[in-house]
Amino acid sequence: MRHTKLQPVAALAAGTLFGLGLALSGMLDPVRVQGFLDIFGAWDPSLAFVLGGAVAVAMAGMAWLRRMSRPLLADRFHLPMKSPIDARLVVGSAIFGLGWGLGGFCPGPAVASLSLGLTPTLVFVAFMLAGMVAHDRFFVGRPS
């Protein structure tokens, strides 16, 4: 038992930082996201800096984390198991990308922008949740 009761507090702090980062970066705006994906049109490369900055910090964090035997508030690290690149991964990612491009929203920005109370965002999130539940219930059973 390693202070697991504090996990929601850590998650709240991490979620807030994540949401603020999305709000600052421009990722909440579907038009900017679609502009980033519009490499054959009026390409807006600024969002590459969001991913670049995030990956750079996460990589530095990983270097540090490799020296920890376990996380501070949990018994072990829950990392995805090393599995091969399979059809599910590629087909799922392709479907996800299609929706991302068509709507300009991915899950993080869609949920964060619910705070603005806009109807299209509410509709998007409702259908996103339906898509998630449909997948988990009818295709693989319980989420892990």
Partner: peptide, 19 residues
């Protein structure tokens, strides 16, 4: 955008390091 990305990276590190 870079600053926003940095916060997102920090959030990911906190989640892994703590939880």
């Amino acid at each position: 955008s870079l600053l926003g990305g940095t916060l997102i990276g920090l959030s990911s590190v906190i989640m892994l390091m703590l939880n």
